[in-house]
Design a protein around this nucleic acid. Structure first.
Lengths: 338, 338
DNA sequence: TAATCATTATAAACCGGTTTAGCAAATTAA
DNA sequence: TTAATTTGCTAAACCGGTTTATAATGATTA
């Protein structure tokens, strides 16, 4: 139908050069000494015809797309979905749009996705990196494209990132459990050597050791489905009847762990206490409510956007690293034992 | 660093016209009768230098961006996050990327966002429309931009959409509750006149009337926060002590309702049965597990992408409307009363 | 009165692709 | 042997903006 107006059409209609229109559109009327009169005529025309410049053309000539690539492990996971929400909100305020994808923590897939985003000229990346994409990240940085990692990072090379203090928050949570008279505390984690996971484990092991307690770790394979996970935890509980508490390293594990505990006929917190890493709406609703190490999601999103937009707009790239503190939200699942 | 290669650079390096390169890149070498020899030389060069055409330039000249605009009420909500995940997965297979935003169900915000997406030339829209954006949708369609609504639609004008059979699924769920000997069944809903909500209510009211039971509806204002909602449901329960069952029209209401039931000291399903609209991981884990009307999320995503991509690639626009059946997942919260 | 400066506006190149129209040489048909 | 066709390739316009360099006019200054 109504074919979209272009800057050329306006130039023709108003008998003015497109250069002039462009200057006015970009608020350079004064600077470029376009007369008040003409400026107003053009603005009037633009308003009346609801002219919106073609962003593709703009991007092609300026090299800026006002688009951020958000690459998370899985967009539907509670934590990432929350991050996606806040990141979009904040980005939107500065005129940025978000293009996203789920990496599934798959190295090859992620490499390809980075290329796809790069050829669309996103202005910057937010990435939860799987293992083995150091080179691709390096390439981006060398091509002067801002990147902020989050949730995890590479210990062996220097990038901007926003992560939680995985070590400290786990360490504190375990110590808290110990103050509630728990001694046999197991750590249930996903098989993963990524640093967010290893740090959580380090926090657990250190807290245990410092209290002369023996660490007891259950590793769940990545390939497990829900049923398998529940079964595995159930049999772990059967093999370790003396357990006082479980610390789950991710909120999905907590979900499955609760089911397993239920299967074994154990009562929380009477028979066993639990702490979840990552909060979830559900933990507050569940009876008993579940104590959780809560990532400050909104703050993380804010940091991500701050670092990224700052990096995008500044001439020279900087490395910024934020470790944000978590909050241990005490609920009924860790009530002090008698 | 390494400045990105352009088609012009290749043309220069190989002493060949950019037209030729473009033809070869687009698989038109044979059609355009480029010699095998030259074709191979070009392809070799492209591979060796890992050349990736600038998608912006491509989009500018072809008018296609291979980008879909996904506008949902709130990307972090369980249902929408799931949809986002599957939509991206499926779109990705066809080379499409997703740009998203949360409308917050705000009419004005949504209007603006539609314009922002349109000026970025998305190839198509997936939208959960708030009220009052009929004109904007119409405009898109008149401008020949494919749009598929989902979760809800406008009864008074014709668009493509993918929705659930809100009426039928609620009707069936209520009838099921009645077979479990519930008679005093209340319907807890958000104040909303959007059709997905009114249809659910219609299903409830009809099922009740047909069984000569009296409908009892609690409307929760949109402006409520979590605490207010819990309080409101709690006092509703206090005022209606004879209730046998509650039907919650959204899964967030269920969350809050469970808390309210707990506050009142009622046991599910012994004292009161509950059914949730929209499933949630949590409903399966909760004790008792919660019966829910489950939207077939993956199927909806598939339908959305099918309709949209089909519309994008076909010359003439078509209207396609899919009403997908929900599944009533029976769990412990609706165990038959004695 | 000529030189200089401000003011106002524009032509043209550019970003990096696609596509139309057409040319020259080689081959085939008449 | 000449005309017609096929083969192989490209110049140039286009998509819709931005930006640099410069022109034309009128006002000031020396």
């Amino acid at each position: 139908m109504k074919n979209k107006l272009s800057i050329n059409d306006i130039a023709k209609a108003l008998q003015v050069s497109k250069t002039t229109i462009s200057f006015i559109l970009n608020g350079k009327a004064e600077e470029k000494r376009i007369s008040k009169d003409l400026t107003e005529r053009v603005i009037k025309f633009i308003k009346e015809n609801d002219f919106r410049p073609n962003q593709l053309a703009k991007s092609l000539s300026t090299g800026k797309t006002f688009t951020i690539g958000l690459m998370v492990e899985k967009i539907s996971d509670y934590f990432f979905a929350q991050i996606a929400y806040h990141v979009e909100e904040l980005a939107n305020k500065s005129g940025y749009k978000i293009i996203y994808c789920s990496t599934e923590n798959d190295t090859q897939k992620t490499k390809e996705l980075i290329k796809l985003f790069a050829e669309r000229h996103v202005d910057g990346f937010i990435i939860t990196p799987p293992v083995g994409i150091e080179k691709e990240i390096k390439d981006l940085m060398q091509n002067d494209i801002p990147v902020v990692l989050f949730d995890r990072f590479f210990t062996d090379f220097n990038t901007s990132y926003v992560v939680m203090d995985n070590y400290e928050s786990t360490y504190k949570a375990i110590n808290y459990l110990i103050t509630t008279k728990c001694a046999n505390i197991a750590f249930i984690e996903l098989e993963s050597d990524q640093n967010q996971m290893t740090e959580r484990k380090r926090g657990y092991v250190n807290a245990m050791n410092e209290n002369r307690l023996t660490p007891n770790i259950l590793r769940i394979p990545f390939s497990n489905d829900k049923k398998q996970t529940i079964l595995q935890i159930t049999s772990f509980l059967a093999d370790n009847i003396q357990l006082d508490a479980l610390f789950f390293a991710t909120n999905y594990l907590t979900m499955h762990g609760i089911k397993a505990i239920h299967n074994r006929g154990l009562k929380i917190p009477h028979d066993i206490s639990i702490v979840a890493f990552d909060d979830h709406d559900f933990f507050d609703i569940y009876t008993p409510s579940i104590t959780a190490v809560a990532q400050p999601i909104q703050e993380m999103a804010q940091q991500l956007i701050n670092i990224l937009l700052n990096d995008i707009s500044s001439r020279k790239r900087t490395i910024q690293q934020k470790v944000v503190p978590a909050k241990l939200i005490l609920r009924d699942s860790t009530i002090r034992k008698i």
